[in-house]
Structure formats: C-alpha cells, structure tokens
Computed example of a mutant assay.
Amino acid sequence: MASKWSAADIPDQSGRVFLVTGASSGLGLETVRAVARRGARVVLAVRNTTAGEAAAAAIAEQAPGADLEVRHLDLADLDSVRAFADGFDSGIDVLVNNAGIMAPPRSLSKQGHESQFATNHLGHFALTGLLLDRLQGPDPRVVTVSSLAHGHGQIHFDDLTGERGYTPVRYYSQSKLANALFGLELERRLRAAGNPAASLIAHPGFSDTGLLRSTVAVVRIGGRALSPFVTQSAAAGALPQLYAATEPKAEGGQYIGPDGRRERKGAPAVVQLSDLARDPALARRLWTVSEELTGVRFPLPAAA
C-alpha cells in the first residue's frame, strides 16, 4: 500500500512566491512553516502585524534563512484589501486564501457586510481578482480554504447581512459554501479564458485551531469537549491546502480534504463537494453579487 501524503512530500519550492492570508496562527502558520522549509518565499498577509512578525520570527528560528515578509491585510475591510493589492508589486506563484473567522456574534464590516461573509468570502474574492494578473510561473495556483460546514450552507441572497435571521453557525456555513462556489467557478472561468492558473479548494477536517477558540460560547464549549476525540492538529489540518498548493498531481477544480471517517481527520485526498457547491447557476449568481458588493471585476469570461 502506498504511503499517505505528508509534509515530507512537498517538492522543493525554491524560486516560488506564496501569499498566505491569516498566516500568523493555525492553518495559515503551518502552511507558511511547511513551504518556507522547502525554500519558498512567503508573504504573510495578516490583520495583526505584531502577531505576524512573531510568527515569522518563530519560523525563522526553525528554518534559518527562511524568506518571509509580513504585510498588513484586513480582509473584512475592502479598503484594506485594495490598499494591499495596490502596494503589492511582485509576482505570486501560489495564493492561499486561508484566513477566516467562525461563528461570532453578528456584526457588520466597515462596508456594511456581515462579518463572516465579508472576511471569509468577499475579502478573498476581491483579493484574488485584484491580484490575478500577478500570478506567475509554470504552475500558478489559487487555493481557497472551505470547510465541512459548506455542506450545510445556503446563500441567503435575500438576507446576506443576517438582519432578519442571523445565527452564528448558519452564517458561517454560508461563508464556507461561498468559498467553495467561488473556488470552483474561478476554475471554470480560468479554463474558459485559457489562463494557465488553477483554482483548487481545500478543507482541514476538524482541526484544533484558533477558530475553535474564537466562537460564541455554545460552539466553543462543544468544540473543546470534542477536541481530544475528533480533532487533529493544525499541522495535520493544513496538509490538504498544502497538497492543493504544491502537489504536482493536483488539478484545478479538485476539492482536497482528509481521507478519514467523515473527512474529520486523515491524510489529504480528493473529496466531494456538496451538490449546491457544484451548482454552476448558483455560482454565477454569487459571482455577480460578489462583483457588485466588492466593486472588483475579474478579467475572465463567464464559463459557457
């Protein structure tokens, strides 16, 4: 039986540039650590630059000579996203749309969008569109991190801000479905345009990251109670997105998650998106709404 894929299987990444959002902790930090050890130059895009600098320093201690840069990015604020993109003038081989928040009390972003939809989806949608022309190299990729929760999600087009029916988990699931819809629709549009970049989606299963410790009380208590039994480490949870970002055999449009029972834990494998996530009509509708809400339009045609 073939051995299962691990961080040891990441090919040499020398000469490649990675941009990782939410890179100061959890899955993002583990992603940066793994590719930096394999020679990549990594830009850590973080809301808290103090935490980002501390994360970069810790990685540099473990991997002397690691090429790391910390930049400020608040994905919940579209002005911050634009400022980041305007100030970013280098090419990118791999964009990892990793940052996220999970199940907070209802709040609105600076632009008036529900915070989870703003941070998890709209910010990454805008960032990807604004940086699309910076993708470079022989194998450029965009990896968008979704969640098992996408399978329970719906897009509440009539109440995107949750004004009439907000619950934390319901709107988290909406944002994660949006991630999956976006990642797959981006792949369709890249293919229609003949663009060499590939768009992949990943999820970490049940991983012990800061998200479990940043939720509202009922979710947080449940997560802590179950943690020893059903979660895996952040390093293990990052493997699906690392596979999507670096494995030569990975292909655009694939959804990578753990291969264990109910995809909660395990080694990276190609897994199945929900029926809603694979609905091209729903994806096109979300894409149009996302362009309207962000003001960012991709230089890509709609897929036939």
Rank of each mutant, 00 (worst) to 15 (best):
G222T: 05
L226Y: 04
P204M: 02
V219G: 11
A202M: 00
R213W: 11
S233H: 02
Q232S: 04
G223Y: 10
A225M: 14
H203M: 01
R213Q: 14
P228A: 07
A234F: 05
V219W: 09
L212S: 05
G223N: 06
R224E: 14
T209F: 05
G205F: 01
R213P: 09
S227V: 06
S207C: 04
H203T: 02
L212R: 09
A217D: 15
A217Y: 14
H203K: 04
V218P: 11
A234Q: 03
D208Q: 11
V219E: 13
V218W: 14
V230F: 08
R220D: 14
G222M: 06
S233F: 02
S227A: 15
S233T: 13
T231Y: 12
T215N: 12
G223F: 06
V218G: 13
G223E: 07
V216L: 11
H203N: 08
V219K: 09
G210R: 05
V216E: 11
A217M: 14
G210Y: 05
V218E: 14
R220L: 09
G223K: 12
Q232T: 03
A202I: 01
L212A: 09
H203P: 01
A202W: 00
D208F: 07
L226E: 05
V216R: 11
D208T: 03
R224I: 08
A202E: 00
T209S: 03
T209V: 07
A202H: 00
S227D: 06
R220E: 15
S214I: 06
L212Y: 07
G205V: 02
T209R: 01
P204R: 01
